[in-house]
Every structure is written in structure tokens, then in C-alpha cells.
Deep mutational scan, measured.
Amino acid sequence: MADQLTEEQIAEFKEAFSLFDKDGDGTITTKELGTVMRSLGQNPTEAELQDMINEVDADGNGTIDFPEFLTMMARKMKDTDSEEEIREAFRVFDKDGNGYISAAELRHVMTNLGEKLTDEEVDEMIREADIDGDGQVNYEEFVQMMTAK
């Protein structure tokens, strides 16, 4: 299944994987998964984290390695993001709930994920998604960005 991913997608997933893999040992533990999910405003229980890991832990060693992570991402993409997942993601970014993602809100979430971005990089990300040019990202623009192939 992971063989249907483009090189660009694999590179993006590698970057995402390293955000989860806090200690850089090449595997994601339940603790690391929990840290990232909490930084995104989720509050999973230990059991939920274990279930999430077990779902993709092909070799049964209790952690997720990069090939397992790729399989999980490929699977998720095949079920292409349901509207509800996209709306949920939008809410994570839209901290003040005004229906727009500002540069400050984007920077806040990315920083929580451990991504240190310059102001230019954040502005560039907003510009790429900002179709109507108002300097922020509304829900429609967010959907376009998330579903762009």
C-alpha cells in the first residue's frame, strides 16, 4: 500500500514521523504519540494510545517504525480525509473560533508540534493556502489545501 505514495508524500511523512519521534530513535512510543496528540489539544487515554499503536504495529514490538507509519498514512489517505476530520483539524488551528486561521494561530500550532518556523515560513504557508488574498485561511481554503492532490 505504501508503494502507491509519491516521493514527495514519503518525504512529508518522514518529516511528520520525526515530529512524533521525539528522541530520534526511529520508533514512536505511546508516550511520544501522547505528547504530540496533547500538543494538538487531544486528550487520549493510555489505552487509546496503545490501541492506536497496536493498529499499525505490524511486528508487534509495541512501537511504530517508519515503514509501519507509512502504511498507516497510506491507509488513512485511501479513506481520504472525511469532512469531519478536516473540520476537526481546522478547529485545532482556529484557536479563537472566528472561522479563520491567522498567521499567529498557525505559528502557535506548529510551535506546539515542535516545528520552529520563521515568520517568513509561516507567512508563506498562509499565502499558499490563501486563495482570496485576505491574509488568513478560511474553512473553504483549508479544505482545498487539505484535499489538493
Score class of each variant (00 low, 15 high):
133 G>M: 09
48 E>D: 14
13 F>W: 09
45 T>M: 03
13 F>N: 00
142 F>M: 12
77 M>W: 08
147 T>N: 14
147 T>G: 15
99 G>V: 08
136 Q>N: 08
79 D>N: 10
46 E>R: 09
39 S>K: 04
51 D>R: 05
94 D>K: 01
9 Q>W: 15
49 L>R: 14
134 D>I: 02
128 E>Y: 02
43 N>F: 15
91 R>K: 05
27 T>N: 13
111 T>G: 05
107 R>H: 11
87 R>C: 11
109 V>R: 10
115 E>V: 10
79 D>Q: 07
107 R>D: 03
109 V>W: 09
109 V>T: 10
99 G>R: 09
24 G>R: 10
136 Q>M: 00
12 E>Q: 12
56 V>N: 03
70 L>A: 07
20 F>D: 06
139 Y>F: 13
28 I>C: 02
8 E>A: 05
112 N>H: 08
97 G>F: 03
71 T>I: 12
81 D>C: 10
114 G>W: 06
80 T>F: 04
136 Q>I: 07
89 A>F: 15
60 G>E: 00
28 I>V: 09
128 E>S: 00
146 M>V: 12
19 L>E: 07
73 M>R: 10
53 I>C: 14
40 L>M: 14
55 E>V: 13
10 I>F: 09
94 D>E: 03
37 M>W: 14
103 A>M: 15
126 I>K: 00
137 V>K: 03
20 F>A: 01
123 D>T: 02
42 Q>H: 13
23 D>H: 12
124 E>K: 12
40 L>F: 03
48 E>H: 04
103 A>T: 12
76 K>N: 07
2 A>I: 05
131 I>S: 08
83 E>C: 02
64 I>D: 06
129 A>Y: 03
62 G>S: 12
135 G>S: 14
46 E>K: 06
68 E>T: 10
33 L>D: 00
89 A>K: 02
55 E>S: 14
126 I>C: 05
84 E>F: 08
89 A>N: 02
41 G>E: 15
11 A>F: 07
78 K>A: 04
65 D>Y: 13
69 F>S: 07
105 E>D: 11
33 L>P: 09
46 E>T: 02
90 F>M: 05
94 D>Y: 07
28 I>D: 15
113 L>G: 00
78 K>L: 01
89 A>G: 00
113 L>T: 00
116 K>Q: 14
62 G>W: 07
65 D>I: 06
35 T>A: 11
149 K>D: 05
144 Q>K: 07
29 T>R: 04
58 A>T: 13
81 D>L: 06
140 E>F: 04
11 A>R: 01
126 I>T: 11
98 N>D: 10
16 A>M: 12
130 D>Q: 05
92 V>L: 13
51 D>G: 11
18 S>L: 13
12 E>M: 02
62 G>L: 08
43 N>V: 07
14 K>Y: 03
129 A>T: 07
142 F>V: 00
24 G>T: 09
119 D>Y: 11
126 I>G: 00
111 T>A: 12
107 R>V: 05
146 M>E: 06
39 S>F: 00
10 I>M: 07
9 Q>D: 06
15 E>D: 12
105 E>A: 14
55 E>L: 02
132 D>T: 03
96 D>N: 13
101 I>N: 01
44 P>H: 09
141 E>V: 07
124 E>M: 03
10 I>C: 15
68 E>G: 12
76 K>I: 09
149 K>G: 06
37 M>Q: 09
61 N>H: 01
145 M>Q: 13
31 K>A: 07
134 D>P: 09
25 D>I: 06
95 K>S: 15
137 V>Q: 05
50 Q>Y: 15
45 T>Y: 02
143 V>S: 03
48 E>P: 01
89 A>C: 05
120 E>T: 02
30 T>I: 12
114 G>K: 03
63 T>M: 03
54 N>T: 04
55 E>Q: 10
31 K>W: 09
119 D>P: 02
36 V>G: 08
84 E>R: 11
4 Q>K: 11
122 V>N: 00
98 N>I: 08
111 T>K: 05
144 Q>E: 15
30 T>E: 06
149 K>M: 07
139 Y>Q: 01
85 E>P: 00
134 D>H: 01
123 D>W: 07
141 E>A: 03
52 M>K: 07
95 K>F: 05
89 A>S: 13
67 P>W: 08
55 E>F: 02
42 Q>Y: 07
126 I>Y: 12
112 N>I: 10
35 T>I: 13
44 P>Q: 10
99 G>D: 13
87 R>D: 00
53 I>T: 13
123 D>E: 08
141 E>Y: 02
79 D>G: 11
18 S>D: 14
26 G>H: 03
111 T>V: 00
138 N>R: 02
46 E>L: 08
144 Q>G: 08
72 M>N: 13
42 Q>R: 13
57 D>A: 07
3 D>S: 04
135 G>F: 01
54 N>R: 05
57 D>H: 08
29 T>S: 06
117 L>D: 02
128 E>C: 04
12 E>A: 15
18 S>W: 08
17 F>I: 10
11 A>N: 13
139 Y>D: 13
135 G>A: 11
43 N>C: 07
51 D>E: 09
99 G>N: 07
107 R>G: 13
48 E>W: 13
112 N>K: 07
32 E>H: 15
120 E>H: 14
80 T>G: 10
117 L>K: 01
143 V>L: 11
16 A>E: 02
132 D>N: 09
22 K>C: 12
76 K>P: 14
8 E>N: 15
101 I>D: 12
140 E>R: 02
33 L>Q: 00
101 I>Q: 03
49 L>T: 02
56 V>D: 02
51 D>A: 10
75 R>W: 07
6 T>E: 08
108 H>I: 13
131 I>P: 01
82 S>P: 05
130 D>G: 09
23 D>T: 00
109 V>M: 10
90 F>D: 10
59 D>A: 13
139 Y>L: 00
92 V>I: 11
18 S>H: 04
94 D>F: 03
145 M>V: 10
105 E>S: 03
32 E>Y: 01
118 T>I: 12
74 A>P: 08
63 T>A: 10
87 R>A: 15
58 A>N: 03
126 I>N: 08
15 E>H: 10
22 K>W: 01
29 T>A: 12
75 R>P: 09
110 M>E: 02
146 M>G: 14
76 K>G: 01
129 A>L: 04
35 T>N: 06
66 F>H: 04
148 A>L: 05
40 L>K: 13
40 L>R: 07
107 R>Q: 05
128 E>Q: 01
2 A>F: 15
87 R>V: 15
78 K>G: 11
120 E>S: 14
22 K>F: 06
88 E>P: 08
144 Q>D: 05
130 D>E: 10
123 D>Y: 11
67 P>C: 03
98 N>C: 07
71 T>R: 09
40 L>W: 04
130 D>W: 00
133 G>K: 09
51 D>Y: 09
145 M>N: 15
62 G>D: 10
74 A>G: 13
76 K>T: 08
55 E>Y: 07
132 D>F: 14
123 D>I: 14
130 D>S: 09
41 G>Q: 01
124 E>Y: 03
30 T>L: 07
20 F>Y: 14
116 K>V: 09
33 L>V: 07
124 E>L: 01
12 E>H: 09
132 D>V: 08
33 L>K: 00
69 F>L: 11
38 R>E: 14
5 L>D: 05
36 V>S: 07
84 E>N: 11
59 D>Y: 08
3 D>Y: 06
88 E>M: 06
68 E>V: 05
65 D>G: 12
23 D>E: 11
65 D>W: 12
103 A>Y: 01
52 M>A: 00
111 T>F: 06
105 E>Q: 00
146 M>P: 13
56 V>T: 04
101 I>H: 06
110 M>F: 00
65 D>R: 02
44 P>A: 13
45 T>G: 04
82 S>N: 14
59 D>E: 13
79 D>P: 08
52 M>D: 15
10 I>S: 11
22 K>Q: 12
93 F>D: 14
27 T>F: 03
45 T>P: 06
2 A>H: 05
42 Q>V: 01
63 T>E: 03
131 I>T: 13
44 P>M: 01
118 T>D: 13
98 N>E: 15
124 E>N: 12
46 E>H: 06
19 L>S: 06
80 T>S: 10
